[in-house]
Design a binder for these strands. Structure first.
Lengths: 206, 206
DNA sequence: TATTCACCCTACCAACCGGTAGGTAGGCAC
DNA sequence: GTGCCTACCTACCGGTTGGTAGGGTGAATA
């Protein structure tokens, strides 16, 4: 088991520090690969003290997932409220998704892991993390198509490819970083973003 | 731990049956979530007998990865040799990638898991499973661009988005299957494939 | 016939897992 | 003071893990 680097934000209370360390651990090693002991060590407490705050490993894992989910949802709401224009709204939402990926790669990875480990739970109806994003964006595209501003295409299939491309790119960044030189890596980051934007504009916008 | 259904192909020798069961187990539960005992049970032998064929869990895991890797490589060679025309070659390779995803979702999932679990090992230079695909396709696109048959774009960024979209779609199929009705699911399968093809033709082909 | 060897087994091990029992120290209310 | 709370601790539990030791068997080899 790799030792986790300790979380150094003493201004947070213990519970938040546990959540933070757990997010990092679960995203790096997965549910089974993470021991609550290692999480406890990362926040400099003993295992029973951690279990005082979260009564079981499952509960801790659930709390991490929930904190991600609520945060992601509020991000979406903000992005949707930003504009009235369909094209701009579309770009804003994708931008918001990109920013989340970039700022919280741990969360991105963990949600993908959850989908691999537990597809049935990940899919429990409205709990699935991508569901609200897809729903809102499908509506948005349909609206744009009725207004004659978007090309005719299957919104779901299109969105899944775009979001999937972005999602996959983010989770493979650690690998790419090891393969490419620093300058190539940085260039690819920019190019991928631009390329994705081109795909959206070329395929969706009239 | 979920019990694995036993592999019922008695014509294979034990070693191959172990590999097969291990692939399924690792892809479903990951390295830490899989016990070699459960793999042994799936092929109706005891744990020490499994360890007779693969001397450790790591070795078994490595053997599974290697068998996938060699298979994937031969798939690529076949696809590249299929045509001289750049456009057709491009479509053939993507088709080959698609077929692999479809026929061996376990392998697809496992390789993604490996990237999440162990980015540094996954990236060990020429071992990375996508490296040969990307290399060959980058060359192909460059050639097409010189011939004036492909649009000017950054091959790597374009390819990563396309392959990422396909890859991500495959690993989320189990989740999607639980969310959508059977007919919607089937329709989405078709639409996504068509949509991806449209993206390639629209963005790359002149 | 004697020996080797691949294959599979039972029995066992130390290490680690998630979780519990029970106790201590300090803060706050009365 | 007493009582009660939160936060943390040490010590321990049963169960599971990856891996080892060593024995049996049957087919090939000398």
């Amino acid at each position: 088991m790799t030792k986790l680097k300790s979380v150094k934000t003493p201004e947070l209370d213990t519970k938040s520090r546990i959540l933070q360390a757990a997010l990092e651990a679960f995203s790096q090693s997965g549910f089974y690969g993470t021991s609550i002991n290692s999480v406890a060590e990362a926040v400099n407490i003993k295992k029973p003290s951690l279990l005082h705050h979260f009564s079981s490993k499952e509960k801790l894992y659930g709390a991490v997932l929930e904190s991600i989910s609520t945060r992601l949802l509020s991000e979406l709401e903000a992005a949707m409220a930003s504009s009235e224009d369909e094209k701009q709204q579309m770009l804003n939402v994708m931008d918001s998704f990109y920013r989340w990926n970039k700022e919280c790669p741990n969360e991105t990875v963990l949600l993908l892991r959850e989908m691999l480990d537990n597809p049935q739970r990940a899919a429990t109806a409205h709990n699935w993390y991508l569901a609200p994003w897809l729903e809102r964006l499908v509506e948005l595209i349909r609206r744009g198509q009725q207004n004659g501003r978007f090309h005719e295409l299957e919104p779901m299939a299109f969105l899944y490819n775009i979001i999937g491309a972005q999602h996959y790119f983010v989770v493979s960044l650690p690998t790419l970083k090891q393969i490419l030189s620093a300058s190539d890596f940085k260039a690819l980051l920019k190019q991928q973003r631009q390329e994705l934007k081109s795909l959206i504009e070329l395929r969706l916008f009239k």
